[in-house]
Every structure is written in C-alpha cells, then in structure tokens.
C-alpha cells in the first residue's frame, strides 16, 4: 500500500480508505463482528490507515464495533466519521440535519461510541437544504479550534457550496474544509457480478481528496 497526502493538510493516508458501512447488521444486512474484525485486520496488515465510518452506518453499530478494533492503535489510524443522517430511525429533529445543535449532539454520541476524545476527519454527510454554508463552516471551525475534530469535509454537497465554504474560511481566517466527498457507488449486481461500492473524493482547489 502506498500513501498520499490528504488534500492540502499534510496528513498521510493510505491510497485506499476502508469504508465501514457494512460493519454491523442494523440495516438488516452487513458483516457480523467477527467478519468485520477480519476485514479491519487484513486492511491494516495491507498497510491501510484511513478508516471511514458514520454515525448512521448500521445505526451506530459500525462506530461501536470500530471502537474495539481501534482501541490499541488509535493514534496510528486516521479516523473519519459523519453526521446529519442520524444514528437511528428515531434520531428525531435534533440529531439529524446540518444545524450546530445536530452537529454537537451527533459528534458527542459518536465520540462515546468510538471511545475516543477526538475525530480526525468529520464529514457533513449530506446537505439538509436549509442550514446556510457559513453556519456550517463556522461550526466546523469552532470544533477544530476546540480540538474535538482535526479536519472537516463536505460530503455530497454541490460544488458551489464547497467553494463558498472554502472562500469564506480563507477570508475569515477559519480552518478550511479539507475535503470533498462524492458518492459514486455503482451496482454490478444486475449484471451477474457482486455488488461493489466505491466512494471517492473529487478535486477541489488546492487539494485532491
């Protein structure tokens, strides 16, 4: 496994990130803990160091499983999680969406499940269509200043909103959003081939992520 610099952060991450949306069975399908640990261990043995989860993945089970896997090597991995979609079907109004309150509620719950005191990269999972990007960018900057997250990213946002966030951050002296993520999962199942999902970051401004 080779390593790349993540955007313009200087952070060294493996060429392939491990998405853990399949860790758990909260969605009615996925890998049990034994298989998930097997996947995690083999990924680490191959040199992988970039673990991607979300509070929503398997309704919290992905984060909970990962907490045991990463406990002995927390500082060696780059840990990414996301907020906005809720960690359960009953998440309600204050633990979904992009508001600062949802952000704080969700982040604190993720920290507890992951048994860590900071998230390396926090993604806004999807735009909620109502929270202005300057509110989102400022809230993320506040969390970076507090040390609870180290980097922030926007997932599945329109490019112009990512550009606005980056521009505001530059002008106002905020920590910039470091990354953009675009979901491009393609399904081959209908073509007699097992389903494969890939997620990618796309190019923005100063960094390829």
């Amino acid at each position: 496994m080779r390593y790349r610099i993540f955007g313009n952060t200087g952070l060294r991450v493996s060429t392939l990130a491990l998405g853990t949306g399949n860790f758990g069975n909260g969605w009615g399908y996925g890998a049990d803990k034994e298989e998930a640990l097997n996947i995690y261990t083999r990924y680490r043995e191959a040199g992988g160091n970039f673990i991607d989860t979300a509070d929503q993945y398997q309704f919290g089970q992905s984060e909970s499983m990962l907490s045991d896997f990463i406990a002995s090597e927390r500082d060696d991995i780059v840990l990414a999680t996301k907020f906005s979609l809720g960690d359960s079907p009953e998440a309600g109004l204050q633990r979904t969406g992009n508001s600062r309150k949802s952000l704080i509620n969700s982040l604190e719950a993720s920290l507890k499940r992951l048994k860590t005191d900071h998230i390396d990269l926090l993604w806004v999972h999807m735009p909620d269509g109502v929270t202005p990007i300057d509110h989102i960018a400022k809230a993320l900057d506040d969390l970076i200043r507090s040390g609870k997250i180290l980097y922030a990213g926007l997932s599945d946002f329109p490019a112009w909103r990512v550009a606005t966030a980056a521009t505001l951050a530059e002008l106002r002296g905020w920590s910039s959003v470091s990354a953009e993520l675009v979901t491009v999962r393609r399904r081959f199942a209908d073509r007699q081939i097992s389903q494969r999902g890939i997620w990618t970051g796309t190019r923005f401004g100063r960094g390829d992520t």
Binding site: M1, R4, F6, V13, T15, L16, A17, L18, G19, T20, G21, N22, Y29, G30, A31, E35, N38, I39, R42, Y43, A46, G48, F50, D52, L181, V184, R185, R186, F188, R191, I193, S194, R196, G197, I198, W199, T200, G201, T202, R203, D208, T209
Partner: peptide
C-alpha cells in the same frame, strides 16, 4: 470489474473509499 472501477478512480488522483462486506471482497479491492 470492481478493481477496474477502483483503479479508474485512483488514476484520477482521488482517494477511493472501499466498502467490503466480506474478507474476500476486501482482498479483491486491495
């Protein structure tokens, strides 16, 4: 096909996030 898709993304200079459900899929992705 999964390897072709991931290699295509890699060739763009972007970072793929793989999402295997089994160790077999992980090996294929890696």
């Amino acid at each position: 096909p999964g390897q072709i898709a991931i290699a295509w993304v890699l060739a763009k200079g972007t970072l793929p996030i793989i999402g295997p459900r089994t160790a077999e899929q992980l090996a294929d992705n890696l």
